[in-house]
Write a protein that binds this DNA or RNA. Structure first.
Lengths: 328, 328
DNA sequence: GCAATTTAATTGACTGAGTCAAGTATTTTC
DNA sequence: GAAAATACTTGACTCAGTCAATTAAATTGC
């Protein structure tokens, strides 16, 4: 598959329904909501004029060139518009003492009145739009708009943060792992039950000094987790429940979590870090190997509705090399 | 507060930052993305012309009046546009045999070529826009656009569905309840652990014939849950983990879940339905009372970091009145 | 220090997109 | 069969904006 013309591949990834959805949204938005900024119908000002008035009100004093740049307007167009504002008594201009070519622009009292009126109208339009929506709906709307904006603007999205667990996180750990392993490997509910039991036990027996759970998230969206819990002996710790959501893979988050865990284990004075996994989880294994873990034991078992090969890996925390960040 | 001028109240509910966000989104969208539909820059057609061509292509044969209506165009404008299309050989017209006033419009082969070319260009614009976004990002974008659209259009949102549990649901139950009770009543992680244990046990011992879990969701968003599990005796069932997310309250979802549960319990042949709750959960209590439950036992306990009053409620399933839907 | 270039603003001529009002041909209604 | 409605067309116009040329001042290069 992937050896075929990659550009076509990239195209083929984007479905017609996705495209149709964008087009539908675009139509919807420009028709129904794009009117928002044309909230000047009951005023003698056009959209662009209103934008210029806003801008003039925002800066106390500006120059025409600055406006053309900020609003990307044609200087000719702007010039005429400013003249009409002057004629209407909305604007005062004076030669710039520092640069005789330019003029300084400032709204008159009347102009500022028009500016606040326009702002008020636009505000009211939006209020009218938002009013029928519940508070929750408005919150969701804000979130949805923000996410459309960040996604489309190609801005670097909010960074991934790693933090200790809070109330509600265990459920996310359980849900995301159960779903992921069900989808990828066909594991059944047994796995969800196991994770739930581990998480419940973690909370019940939590010793903050010697145990920890790290949650990776971006913008409040759960991305992954790792746990460090006490092991069978005083100087042995256990790494558990490493998981990174599909959405966040390929950026070294797994390694980061593992190293976080190793660092804390070492700080706690543990001498040995163990973990149990299954051989089919190759992505995780690569991380463990890179971090210096070695395979200690392997045994077949039937769990989660599948025949699996359980593996016990261990890391000597007293060795200097443990937890080396793998090459990016 | 609320006795003050209610219209002002309604206004005051909507924060300046909310309004500013909408305006910001509007600016962003119209500037960066609104260009989408102007994806015809390299063609001699304007946006409106392109819209007309799309529409002509969509219907095999139409009339001008239908187009003016569908695209809400000025008939004069459209008339001239159609004439120019005819002149350019994109369009054939003929008198409507059924109505001599009207003319039937049909794209020529050449016109259809232009139509597909325009569609292709618009498609490519969108592909170019989506290409740098990851697959997950595109999914999120679609979801975010859909939610902006439904929220703003005031359309009735997707209906709430109630379905049996699937893999991954237990985590959502745990997370949403733990968060909700922590926020509302300050309960600590003990509660999350308890719910996790209950959920884990539910999966482990699940008897599909006599037990069930219902999940309420809308558009794949988790909204609430209820469980029915076997009780202490053969003919006693236990209702557990009733919860409705704050986002979905006030629409009778809780009652619906309880009635679902009661109905199933009765179908299974249970004669008695018990539940354990705490007196501070008054919203839930109202539902239980409405469904016919009676308080059987009450005892103080210290759990989840708080002093609480546990209550045991029971419902005689052999009585005819059990599970009456409360008045809306 | 001064010619050449750049920048700021203005003016004139123009276009593209769309609106409004009036008119023609046909059909529907009563 | 007259009056009203519908389907379209035409002419005159406006609004928003563009392009090119011009004027005046400021900056740069040598």
């Amino acid at each position: 598959m992937s050896h075929l013309t990659p550009s076509y591949q990239a195209f083929a990834d984007i479905g017609d329904d996705e495209i149709e959805q964008i087009r539908a949204f675009n139509r919807f938005y420009t028709n129904r909501i794009g009117v928002l900024d044309r909230a000047f119908m009951e005023t003698p000002y056009t959209l662009t004029e209103a934008r210029v008035i806003y801008e003039l009100a925002a800066h106390g004093t500006t120059s025409a060139s600055r406006l053309t740049e900020e609003l990307s307007l044609d200087p000719a167009y702007l010039s005429r518009m400013l003249k009409s504002f002057s004629d209407a008594g909305l604007l005062e201009t004076m030669r710039d003492p520092a640069d005789g070519r330019g003029r300084l622009l400032q709204l008159t009292l009347r102009g500022r009145g028009v500016a606040t009126d326009l702002a008020q109208r636009s505000r009211q339009r939006i209020v009218a739009l938002l009013e029928p929506i519940t508070e929750n709906g408005r919150r969701d709307l804000g979130a949805a708009m923000a996410s459309v904006q960040t996604l489309l603007s190609g801005d670097t999205p909010a960074p991934v943060t790693i933090r200790p667990h809070q109330i509600g996180d265990m459920g996310m750990v359980i849900s995301s792992q159960a779903k992921a392993y069900a989808e990828t490997y066909g594991w059944n509910g047994e796995y969800e039950a196991l994770v739930a039991e581990i998480c419940a036990a973690f909370i019940r027996n939590f010793d903050p000094a010697r145990e920890r759970c790290w949650i990776a998230e971006r913008n409040g969206t759960f991305l992954g987790s790792i746990f460090l819990v006490k092991g069978s002996t005083e100087d042995t710790a256990k790494l558990r429940l490493l998981h990174v959501d599909a959405a966040a893979r390929g950026h070294g988050l797994g390694s980061k979590l593992v190293n976080e865990c190793i660092g804390f284990a070492r700080d706690c004075g543990y001498r040995r870090l163990e973990l149990w996994t299954n051989d089919i989880l190759s992505a995780a294994r690569r991380i463990y190997v890179a971090a210096g873990f070695t395979l200690e034991k392997e045994e077949a078992h039937h769990s989660f509705g599948k025949d699996l090969n359980g593996q016990t890996w261990a890391l000597d925390l007293t060795a200097a090399t443990a937890g080396v960040t793998p090459p990016a």
